[in-house]
Amino acid sequence: MTTVATTKPGFFERFFARHRGPLLVSPAILVLVAMNIFPLFWSFGLSFYKYRANRQAEPVFVWFDNYIKILSDPVVWSRFQTTAIFVAISVLFQLIVGFLLAVLFEKQFPGRRVLLMLVLTPMMLSFVAVGAFFRYYYEPTFGLLSQAIKAITGEPFIILQSPAGAIGAIIFADVWMWSPFVMLLVLAGLVSVPKHLYEAAEIDRVSWWRRFRTITFPYIRGLLLLAVLFRTIETFKLFDAVFLITEGGPGTSTETIAVYVYRVAFQYFRTSESAALGYILLFVVVVLTNLYLFFVQRRARET
């Protein structure tokens, strides 16, 4: 007769076996708390104080003074208006261009893979590279755009001279960079449509518009809304392209709210005011997200 020696698991082995899941995620949670949650609460607390990081004076609790000051500041509302213009026009064009590109790439054609890779390149570039590229692209003395137009008209093209031109130039850069992102989402929806539905529609001689409305659109609707949400939030925070191409000019005509937050925080050093402004932006983004969720849920209920 043989006996098998069994050893009782130690305390740590038992503890690890019992709490394996929480223990595995705890490092990530610790990092999240240290790097995100704690600064978030800290800056939220700071937004109720009067404090400047470049002064030695102790922070003074001022209740909602910073929020009142910001919301009654016409400059802030002017920057919100500029941002709204960017969001409305840029996201609309990103959706249109992204959708058209997705329709194009849904079909198989020679060179599709190479072309798709090229079209996706802009969204993989760094913001700084794109900003620097477009600054030179629009530059009226050497720039490609100006040189091309000058070859026809004989005069340099100075797109950044007027507020409207500068806004258009930044929107073009943003659309160029982010339409491929919308395209990817829409393309995912397009390729998921069962082919037999199109075949059935073909047999029934359904018009192009009806086929799109009743077959294609329901499959891409959710993804389009997701694209609208992502791009609205990102465009709302538009900073890099503006700062690198126009620095907010001419005058302040292209200065978005994100650029203004940067100025308040790191140039004026009105630290607690910038924290309050940051939370107002966060509130706007949360409202936009909830609006999106509301529409998605309503659609889900309808279907």
């Binding site: 600054r135 530059e139 009226p140 003395t141 340099p156 100075i158 950044l160 126009t246 620095e247 000019g249």
Partner: peptide
């Protein structure tokens, strides 16, 4: 000055 002067950059 060159036309870039008109852009403020």
């Amino acid at each position: 000055a060159p036309p870039v002067a008109k852009t403020g950059t």
